[in-house]
């Protein structure tokens, strides 16, 4: 089981992800350069957070055209596993590997803070070790994280249990007050219909070590290993 972390110019959470996969999960991890045309035999592709190509246009809008993304799209279309976090999620929606879009936050500010997430389904590779309704504390750090899609898509996401995480309060209630960025239906993370492509705005790699005082994020990486290796 080999992970690959794509590095775009402007990625800045790439090393954090590599650290978690290699040093905390103890799995091999290959950095993949944006100009490359090969996934180097990786079984699970991670798209990190950051500001790919500066993101001056619209987050992820340029990254989708990079050489490596053509490989990632082909890989995902064949059922390969792809997981995007923050900017990675934005790139996945821009690439149409995931439905919807990530708009500017409701308050038009960048927001970095711990938020509460409610697990909405355990039927996914990244939530398999969680219980439905389980509350996690995971930080967000984004300016464009307000998930949006049309009504039809939302219904389809709900019907197919593609919503993985929703923002909630400390008691686990999904409320508007607990929605940090104004995301539609408090959506924080989703997967595709084929359940092989995953995206979330919060950063599990930032809370996967006891040194940082929070290991809720590690549950997501544990889930991946649990399912993929099972």
């Amino acid at each position: 089981m080999k992970f690959g972390v794509v590095i775009f110019p402007g990625s800045n959470c790439d090393q954090d992800l590599i650290h978690v996969v290699r040093d905390i999960m103890g799995k091999p991890c290959e950095p993949l350069w944006h100009k490359d045309h090969s996934l180097r035999g990786c079984d699970f592709i991670l798209l990190p957070g950051g500001f790919s190509y500066g993101d001056y246009l619209r987050s992820g809008a340029i990254a989708r055209f990079s050489p490596i993304m053509q490989e990632v799209i082909e890989f995902a279309d064949k059922g390969g596993f792809v997981f995007g976090i923050c900017n990675g999620f934005q790139i996945l929606t821009e690439s149409r590997l995931l439905p919807g879009a990530l708009l500017h936050n409701r308050n038009h500010q960048f927001i970095c803070k711990n938020v509460s997430l409610r697990c909405e389904t355990d039927e996914s590779f990244i939530t398999s070790k969680l219980k439905v309704g389980q509350r996690l504390t995971i930080p967000i750090a984004h300016g464009e994280g307000r998930f949006h899609c049309d009504a039809e898509t939302l219904t389809s996401l709900q019907d197919n249990r593609q919503i993985l995480f929703r923002y909630c309060d400390e008691q686990g209630e999904v409320t508007d007050a607990a929605n940090p960025n104004g995301a539609l239906d408090n959506i924080a993370g989703i997967c595709n219909k084929g359940r092989n492509v995953f995206g979330m705005m919060p950063h599990p790699e930032r809370c996967s070590s006891s040194l940082l005082g929070n290991t809720d994020g590690k549950l997501i990486f544990d889930s991946i290993l649990n399912t993929v290796l099972a």
Binding site: N12, C13, Q15, D16, H19, V20, G49, Q109, F110, I111, C112, K113, N114, P139, A141, H203, E205, R206, C207, S209, L211, L212, G213, N214
Partner: peptide, 20 residues
Amino acid sequence: RWVYTQYDSMVGTVNMSTNQ
């Protein structure tokens, strides 16, 4: 907090003060 939540204080995963 109005100021510092607009700064990414956690990238790099070395800030040990976020939760403590």
